[in-house]
Amino acid sequence: MIVNDNKIPDMPPPASTVGAVGWLRKNLFSSWANSILTVVVGYIVISNLIPLIDWVFLTSDWLGDSREDCTSGGACWVFITVRLEQFIYGFYPESEYWRINTIFVMLAGLIAALIFEGTPKKGWLGAFTLLIFPIIAFYLLYGGAFDLEVVETHKWGGLSLTLVLACVGIVASLPFGVLLALGRRSNMPIVRSLSTAFIEIWRGVPLISVLFMASVMLPLFVSGETSMDKLLRALIGITMFQSAYMAEVIRGGLQAIPKGQYEAAMALGLNYWKSMGLIILPQALKLMIPGIVNTFIALFKDTSLVLIIGLFDLLAIVQAALSDPKWLGYSVEGYVFVAFVFWIFCFSMSRYSQALERKLHTGHGAR
């Protein structure tokens, strides 16, 4: 009896199960119900998407100096291009735009260097970004040193003010949130009670009320000779509000750490702060990446509420421009522009969060 030991090569998969056709059959036409739903949703999307693309791109006007240049019947992006500098810089003096541009370039360069895998000495670079760069940015924005003209904060506005509010709120709320979360889990009754009361009070009121309180009541707690800047009051209110939410996110991560990790830290003879800093928090923070970034995104969008206390962020600047008699009737273009800018920043944070999760293997499962 002759046995053929030669392995028969595998047959290729059916053409209908691979490639674009296979993806469509698997995801969109896997059953008759999914097929009907795909056709209905596809019709609705296409019937609305084509007019939208036509309005945004094909029949829109992009260049010009006034509304008279918008003659095509589509979107009038001339309104955005004419007012773009005001939307970015607010009421900042035009001769000092270079200061804001310098901050933008430095911030973009630092973020890119921190994200890039091959950057050497990332620890020092991160410390510079968190500790030294804010000082440089403050003196560039405000002035008063190195012969720079002083620009009062009431002249700040637009996208630059939105980024100031978001960056300060993000950087300040995270460490405060960590301390509040540790305090709420503390074995000391006074610390635990104070942390719990702080978190529950600040989470129980809307941010609008917090901003009003920071704007109206906060100056009452300082001496009469001290004048608190309106922007500083808003930053304090936003930081305190977001710290309460951040604390609950971090507390959830701490509770997800197995008890054995705490016992292992005690077995190594580490004190409370060393065990938290070296063992518990590094593991917990990896688990909390989605929740932390979600809180950051919410903070970035909530910066638009500072309009109610007289600060002109990006949304407020656009709304002010829409009240100009020369540009009445172009509110859709203005709000679309604001939505697109906010989406770009929020989507970028979301994508970086996902990349960071994959890098740190936070799923703890098969990839």
Rank of each mutant, 00 (worst) to 15 (best):
A234R: 02
A181I: 10
V178M: 12
L131W: 02
I170L: 07
P219D: 03
M217P: 00
T226D: 05
R192H: 11
V216Y: 07
I201G: 07
T153I: 01
L110N: 10
S227Y: 11
K121S: 08
M106V: 15
Y142N: 12
I111Q: 11
P134L: 07
S209A: 15
W156L: 11
V191L: 15
F176A: 12
H154S: 14
I208C: 04
F133G: 02
A166H: 05
R185V: 07
V191H: 09
L140Q: 07
F116N: 10
K122H: 03
L141F: 10
C167N: 12
P206M: 10
I170D: 01
R185Y: 01
S173C: 14
V168C: 03
I170T: 00
S223N: 08
V150C: 00
L180H: 00
P120I: 03
G109L: 13
G177L: 08
V150W: 06
G224L: 09
V210R: 02
S215F: 11
E152A: 13
E200N: 15
I170M: 09
N101T: 09
I170C: 03
S173R: 04
P134D: 05
V171A: 10
M213T: 15
A127T: 09
V222A: 14
L125D: 01
I201V: 15
M217V: 13
F133H: 05
L165Q: 04
T196I: 00
I190Q: 03
V205W: 02
I136R: 09
S215I: 01
L114G: 08
G158N: 10
W202R: 12
W202M: 15
S209N: 09
I103L: 06
G177K: 04
